[in-house]
């Protein structure tokens, strides 16, 4: 069952939701938001594609296997933990390679480092896991529907 209205809206909404998810992720660095919510939002974008255009289209839109995306995310989080461990001897210690502290104790530079990498990992783990579960469920449902039609 395809709906013209839904698929037209999806074409417009999907990039919007993805941009919003990245914005929420970025905002989460210092304010409410972050990798978890951002990842969930991104997953809804692909869920919308799946509802409007079908499972195959959603898989194509995602490009990579959901499991690989989740694994990549978990890998990012692990690397951020080990990074702090190797640099300072404490696992998960925040590392800020672009920040310098001057004599008065003021910080200069980009607040961009291992914590951002960890959050990015969370984003991809959530996106991959939610899409993985959703695709697997849809796969079973569509297969059962095929059997009934036969």
């Amino acid at each position: 069952m395809k709906s013209l209205i839904l698929s037209t809206c999806t074409r417009m909404l999907m990039p919007l939701i993805l941009i919003l998810s990245v914005f929420v992720f970025w905002r989460g660095h210092n304010e409410p938001g972050g990798g978890f919510i951002g990842g969930l939002l991104a997953a809804t974008a692909f869920a919308l594609v799946e509802k409007a255009e079908g499972l195959e289209a959603a898989k194509r839109a995602l490009r990579f296997r959901p499991q690989s995306i989740a694994a990549f995310g978990l890998g990012c989080a692990l690397v951020s933990g080990v990074w702090g461990g190797l640099q300072y001897g404490y696992f998960l210690k925040g590392v800020w390679p672009f920040i310098t502290i001057d004599a008065e104790g003021n910080k200069h530079g980009l607040p961009f480092g291992s914590i951002f990498l960890f959050d990015l990992g969370v984003y991809f783990v959530v996106l991959g896991t939610v899409c993985g579960i959703l695709f697997a469920l849809e796969d079973v449902v569509s297969r059962e529907a095929d059997v009934e039609e036969d």
Binding site: S68, A71, F72, L78, G81, G85
Partner: peptide, 17 residues
Amino acid sequence: LFWALVIPFGTAVLALL
């Protein structure tokens, strides 16, 4: 001690990839 978590998780990640 943290390597005891990093090694199995890292292995799981590589096996998934």
